[in-house]
């Protein structure tokens, strides 16, 4: 009976995750076909004029979505055991996207973020931590430290999920308090990933305790 409740919980979590991935896909699709005067870019015209910004933006918008399925499959124990090759390939995909595409472009966009220095710092730190955790996870598995690899991947993926949590926070905060748009943005630039990081550290502490 207990197990059944857990299954229901994990399946509903899976469903929720799928739903948010779908929403993220819709956000990505706004930028197809390629146009520098749509959606978010409507209020980024000064930045669009910079030669590198549209490149960074579109690489970020098109590639980032890949980390959601690529990262998520890695948590399945059965997949890791039965199809280790898939785990490895998905890992490479995830790393390529984070380290070469979505991560660096995220930092470039972050430097030009709306809302001034505080949100710019927030987004840039998010990008740096994301790359750092991903690189560490890679090093750890190369050295065969599976447990450390797992912890760093948890952290990296928690930051990948900030794409979802940042938007979810914004939705909730606006629904309750109706703050001004840029105040909201400055807040979620930090809240969107700090919260995830705290939760993942709690999970890691919990897992470490369980092991010993």
């Amino acid at each position: 009976m207990h197990l059944k409740a857990q299954t229901v919980f994990s399946y509903s979590l899976l469903l929720l995750y799928a739903y948010f991935c779908y929403l993220m896909l819709l956000i990505t699709l706004q930028y197809i076909p390629l146009d520098t005067d749509v959606a978010f870019l409507r209020i980024k015209q000064d930045e669009v004029a910079l030669f590198y910004y549209p490149w960074a933006f579109f690489i970020h918008a098109y590639c980032s979505i890949l980390v959601l399925p690529a990262g998520f499959t890695q948590f399945s124990p059965s997949l890791r055991k039965q199809l280790p090759q898939v785990h490895k390939w998905a890992g490479w995909l995830y790393l390529t996207v984070v380290l070469l595409l979505a991560g660096p472009t995220g930092i470039i966009i972050g430097i030009h973020a709306n809302g001034g220095w505080s949100s710019q710092l927030g987004f840039c730190m998010l990008g740096l931590f994301w790359i750092y955790f991903s690189v560490m996870a890679w090093f750890k598995i190369k050295k065969g430290e599976v447990q450390q690899h797992r912890y760093f991947m948890y952290r990296s993926f928690a930051l990948a999920l900030s794409a979802i949590t940042l938007r979810a926070w914004k939705y909730i905060i606006v629904a309750i308090w109706h703050p001004r748009p840029m105040d909201t943005y400055r807040l979620v630039a930090w809240l969107g990933w700090i919260g995830n990081l705290i939760i993942v550290e709690i999970i890691i502490i919990y897992l470490k305790r369980k092991q010993t």
């Binding site: 929403l23 959606a39 606006v174």
Partner: peptide, 8 residues
């Protein structure tokens, strides 16, 4: 379009 929506 975006103030009270999930997205952007």
């Amino acid at each position: 379009r975006y103030y009270d929506e999930f997205g952007r």
